[in-house]
Design a protein around this nucleic acid. Structure first.
Ligand SMILES: [Mn+2]
Ligand SMILES: [Mn+2]
Ligand SMILES: [Zn+2]
Ligand SMILES: [Zn+2]
Lengths: 143, 143
DNA sequence: TAAACTAATTATAACAATTATAATTTAAGA
DNA sequence: TCTTAAATTATAATTGTTATAATTAGTTTA
């Protein structure tokens, strides 16, 4: 079963109406295989939906997040990026061009446990990102 | 030598003028022992500097960041928080009340190395945060 | 199938954090 | 003290995101 069908099934199960806009946003998220901003999505779909409001994109991304279909990646005052949820993974981010690359690594249970033990927090999850320079940007650097 | 004197020395060495506003912002950052927002600082100092502009706070926090005196912690569209740099450490954040607690852990070199190996990135650093509920909020929860 | 109900969309305004601008003031060296 | 570049101030602009209210459109019910 493909990802789009599964996602639509999830929406149906949780009582979220399937609208053409939602269908298109999901389709874009899955096919783009990237981490687009709300505006990326808005611009990519304006041909198909000339009247779509940017609020619709934001509203639906929130809905998708609430039902667990997407993850929102936030960075300071830069715009948030959205990741269609497949499996648990981390991100490596190029500080030069902003590229975001998926990166698998076994969960850092040990860190969570130590943090919980030291601070007394009830730990739910963590956020880990690696920053550096991507191969493309490295090769473009002046020597 | 205390932290404030050291910080002022750093500014002098890098040719950054020491103004009363900069002195006060640094003093507040060091004494508060917390992770204030620009607005926290602005409000805390408005008694001493009734005419200080919020732009001054932002400008100087940027200067301090550039010379390595503070780290900026960014979170989506919430306001950035500023951490006077002492030693390398991570943060445990309460999802209920927003409290940020310092947390020491040996650097995750292994993760950085694997990420670099798998993605081809030249890795510079990483960001790790633990999310959960603080002891205070846990005890206040309804049973 | 048609009517009714309610959620979703749209257009627009509002918001909040941050940055830009330009005039004024001031720290620090000569 | 004088000079000058840097810093501060007041204000406006910018940007990503959310709120509001009217309209439209899925879905359910009869
Ligand atoms: Mn991803
Ligand atoms: Mn800290
Ligand atoms: Zn790059
Ligand atoms: Zn708490």
């Amino acid at each position: 079963m493909n990802q789009l069908k599964e996602a639509l099934e999830t929406l149906k199960e949780t009582g979220v109406r399937i609208t053409p806009q939602r269908h298109a946003i999901l389709e874009y998220l899955i096919n783009s295989m990237s981490h687009p901003t709300a505006d990326d999505i808005y611009k990519a779909l304006e041909g198909k939906f000339p009247n779509m409001s940017v609020a619709t994109v934001y509203n639906n991304l929130r809905v998708f997040r609430e039902v667990g279909l997407v993850k929102e990646l936030t960075y300071g005052d830069a715009s948030a990026r959205f990741d269609f949820v497949t499996t648990h993974h981390y991100h490596v981010i190029c500080e030069n061009c902003g590229k975001i690359v998926d990166f698998h690594y076994p969960g850092l249970d040990e860190v969570e446990q130590l943090a919980s033990h030291v601070t007394g927090f009830k730990v739910n999850n963590h956020r880990l990102e690696i920053y550096g320079t991507c191969p493309e940007c490295t090769s473009k650097e002046v020597h």
